[in-house]
């Protein structure tokens, strides 16, 4: 396999248990560079747990994660972030006491060049680092059309704008793999249409994993879809194949004919 074909992320045989509950069971999947992989499934299927494993919040009981062919062992979230994995959260996770600009600058920090000593001693390098972070953060905000909110606090902004700020923060890290946890929840139709446009643009620079309940959105933007149910992968493939999979219909998408009959 050449480097160009090598997956960015490989999840192999991952199992996670919380006490007696099996949250993920022998889950395997791969994410290639510059592809969008959707993860769908009913509530409690293990989607967020899978994200938690990939970003280092949860360590699996069994199985491995590999980044560009190198096995990751007991990596902390900050180490994974510094490899190039960024994530948005369902609850947004914006720092309420920091302005939108500072929130996004915190996201851009992994790209900062000035070190700890330079900052503490107030060197010129630290000042340059701060300017670079500011510029990157403003670029990310402008890309998502919310540069005018830079100096406001998250709590003052509508939910849709906060959501964009959270996405801007993830983008400012210049990730190679972006994990988006329900990016469309709570968005208006117009915001969702813009999200689709953004995702298609972002796909040119990075790989994206997407947990989302809006199946139409998933089918429109994803190259591949993984379906989880009770912690197991029940289907995987391109959107058309997954949509027509009877197991998926049974577990998640529902059978339109049966729904008509029962109505």
């Amino acid at each position: 396999m050449t480097n160009a074909e090598q997956p960015l992320l490989s999840v192999a045989g991952v199992t996670v248990r919380f006490g007696g509950l099996v949250a993920l069971s022998d889950v395997s999947l791969e994410v290639a560079p510059r592809t969008v992989v959707g993860v769908i499934g009913p509530n409690g299927a293990g989607k967020t747990t899978l994200f938690n494993v990939v970003c280092g919040f949860v360590r699996p009981k069994q199985g491995t994660l590999s980044w560009r062919g190198t096995t990751l062992r007991n990596h902390r979230p900050d180490q994974l972030a510094n490899l190039g994995i960024a994530r948005t959260l369902q609850g947004l996770g914006l720092f309420a006491g920091l302005s939108v600009l500072h929130n996004v600058m915190a996201g851009a920090d992994r790209t900062a060049k000035s070190g700890l000593a330079a900052s503490v001693l107030g060197s010129r390098g630290a000042a340059r680092g701060e300017r670079d972070l500011r510029a990157k953060a403003m670029t990310a905000l402008a890309t998502l059309g919310i540069a005018d909110t830079a100096h406001r606090y998250p709590g003052e902004l509508p939910y849709g704008v906060q959501k964009r700020a959270a996405l801007a923060r993830a983008l400012a890290a210049e990730p190679e793999l972006l994990l988006l946890d329900e990016p469309a929840s709570g968005l208006s139709e117009q915001d969702m249409a813009e999200l689709v446009t953004h995702l298609r643009t972002l796909r040119e620079d990075m790989a994206i994993m997407l947990v989302e309940h809006h199946v139409d959105l998933v089918m429109r933007v994803c190259d591949r879809v993984v379906v989880l149910n009770f912690g197991e992968v029940i289907a995987e493939g391109d959107p058309a194949k997954v949509r027509n999979d009877p197991l998926v219909t049974e577990a998640y998408l529902g059978d339109p004919a049966r729904e008509r009959d029962s109505a």
Binding site: C55, G56, F57, R76, P77, D78, A81, N82, A86, R87, L89, G93, F95, A96, G97, L98, H102, M105, A106, G107, D109, R110, A112, S114, L116, S119, V120, G122, A126, G129, E130, L133, R169, A173
Partner: peptide
């Protein structure tokens, strides 16, 4: 300073700060 920003982010939400590489 960037380090001050990281310290403040860590104080507000350590879990989120870790996700950002802090």
């Amino acid at each position: 300073t960037p380090i001050g920003l990281k310290m403040r982010a860590s104080a507000f939400r350590p879990d989120v700060a870790r996700l950002l590489g802090v």
